[in-house]
Computed example of a mutant assay.
Amino acid sequence: MPSKEPEMGTPVQEFYRDTSVLVTGGTGFMGKVLMERLLRCCPALRQVFLIIRSKKGVDVDSRAEELFNDTLFDKLKQEVPKFRHKVTVVSGDCSLPQLGLSEADRQRLAREVDVVFHGAATVRFDEPLGVAMDINVFGTQHILQLAKDMPRLKVCLTLPDIPPG
């Protein structure tokens, strides 16, 4: 029996067909919305890599569980119940050199990622300047350094740069 030709989707769905996406800041408001939308609306998306840091004694895996227990993901769970197999949680910290990634994770991301959404940032106005610089300025530099090593890269965006719509 011949294989069925995949159904064509919208231009956005076709852009993300067989694409791997890296998301930083995925536990924040904009990151959650982005991930839910990508996973629900782009069925041919290959993989979402999500960089999460441990925080306040909560490990990366527990933070990922908390993330996907958010009611924002309820519709996704109904429409795409097996979405989690497309999500790979990577332990890292955008405020650290090399994003706090292991060498193996860094190499895998460089080899497999096509699209980067960098949304990790501190938005606290009372954050010490050094901490804010590490996250908001140097974190972006570290993402761009990683992006330079991605031969498959199509686009690298920071969440404030994402056009509405």
Rank of each mutant, 00 (worst) to 15 (best):
L101C: 04
L101S: 07
S102H: 07
S102E: 02
S102N: 06
E103M: 08
E103C: 05
E103K: 11
A104V: 13
A104M: 05
A104W: 01
A104Q: 12
A104F: 05
D105A: 10
D105K: 08
R106A: 12
Q107H: 02
R108A: 07
R108V: 08
R108G: 03
R108I: 02
L109V: 09
L109H: 11
A110M: 08
R111C: 09
E112M: 11
E112C: 13
V113N: 04
V113L: 04
V113D: 02
D114H: 13
D114S: 06
D114Y: 00
V115M: 04
V116D: 03
H118Q: 12
H118E: 09
H118N: 13
H118K: 04
G119K: 08
G119E: 04
A120F: 01
A120M: 00
A120W: 03
T122W: 02
V123N: 14
R124W: 03
R124A: 10
R124F: 05
F125R: 12
F125S: 14
D126V: 13
D126T: 14
E127A: 15
P128G: 10
L129Q: 14
L129N: 10
L129T: 12
G130F: 12
G130A: 15
G130C: 06
V131P: 01
V131G: 00
A132E: 03
A132T: 10
A132V: 07
M133N: 11
D134G: 01
D134Q: 12
D134H: 11
D134V: 03
D134E: 13
I135F: 00
N136K: 00
N136D: 02
N136C: 05
F138D: 02
F138E: 06
F138L: 09
G139F: 09
G139T: 05
T140N: 04
T140D: 11
Q141D: 14
Q141L: 15
Q141Y: 15
Q141C: 13
H142N: 12
H142G: 06
H142A: 15
H142Y: 15
I143G: 08
I143E: 09
L144E: 13
L144A: 14
L144P: 03
L144W: 12
L144K: 15
Q145S: 15
Q145C: 13
Q145L: 14
Q145R: 14
L146F: 09
A147Y: 02
A147D: 08
A147S: 15
A147K: 04
